[in-house]
Design a protein around this nucleic acid. Structure first.
Lengths: 169, 169
DNA sequence: CTTGACGTTGAACTTATGTTCAACGTTAGC
DNA sequence: GCTAACGTTGAACATAAGTTCAACGTCAAG
């Protein structure tokens, strides 16, 4: 299978496939005499796994260390370890999200609770002091890095926030 | 207040303070005749706000557009809008996290459920086909960009999902 | 033989949030 | 006047996961 076809089959871009190979994530690739890459059918399956793992929150680096050369021989312990760690990460993250959400909701209601006899500036001050009085919210369980990417992150034609190139005086 | 003292007061690094200034986020800074930056006491408060907003999931860019020059005059509508959007983003993220977690837990139990009479390779195959048979899990609620940073700057990120250009099957 | 689709490469670019560094200037204390 | 601590700058580096580009090679059809 040539790269274009594999891309079509998996829904990935060819640049992604080449990138995965470059970082040592996708090793099942050979070369034809003309230099073209050629993939075994198994590659499709492996890429499916990679995509899934990524959706589940694994980094490519993690996936690389977990993926065995032979899909029949996994490092059972390392895998279970990684899975349970990832689950713990997610739980920690869930806790943080819940807290952020609570915090934001509190802020919203607080802003809306402006007494009728208070002007905006005073209300701003009231809300501000309320907000800043909140404790540091020590969510000490700082898990490792969790990164969840969704499946199709193509950013062509998306109106992207342009980062402005820092003002130079 | 000189930069070192502000850093001490806020717990931020001086490089961070200079960076915030560079990207136009922290504007309350003057210069002494010797070139040294000097900050009003208000800067402490602003930085507290920035830090909080960041913890709540706002990017520096978002914070920059929301933060008024004068803390007494906020753009009420823009603020409420941003807050409610951010809450929605968090909820979408929570849904995705819950799903990922479920998925991982299922995988763990599935791996552990190896029949005694099955060898590892066969079990690997069994689990693998199970995993790959799972549907694409279409979490269609596509929020805008959500980026949550925790206090120590590790991040969870969800990137924007755009239907890719693609390739008809 | 030409054209278009497909393939190859390495390097540079992207995003967001900073840090680090070298080279240099200022200030306070002794 | 020396030294340490602090300040300044611009540029480069770091991360993760790719994309984009230019310049070039290959192949199948007409």
């Amino acid at each position: 299978m040539k790269i274009g076809e594999l891309a079509r089959q998996t829904g990935l871009t060819t640049s992604k496939l080449r990138f995965y190979e470059r970082i040592g994530l996708l090793k099942t690739v050979d070369r034809r005499s003309n230099g073209y890459r050629t993939y075994p059918p198994q590659a499709e399956l492996i890429l499916g796994l990679i995509t899934m793992a990524q959706r589940a929150g694994f980094t490519l680096d993690e996936i690389r260390t977990l993926l065995p050369a032979d899909l029949k021989h996994w490092d059972h312990d390392a895998l279970m370890n990684a899975l349970t760690r990832k689950i713990a990460d997610i739980e920690a993250l869930q806790a943080r999200l819940a807290q952020s959400k609570t915090h934001l909701l509190r802020l919203v209601t607080d802003i809306q609770a402006r007494p009728d006899d208070m002007d905006c500036a005073a209300n701003a001050h009231r809300v501000l002091t309320n907000v800043l009085m909140e404790p540091p919210e020590n969510l000490d369980v700082t898990p490792d890095d969790v990164r969840l990417l969704d499946s199709t992150d193509r950013r062509l034609s998306v109106s992207r926030r342009r980062s402005k190139k820092a003002v130079s005086p």
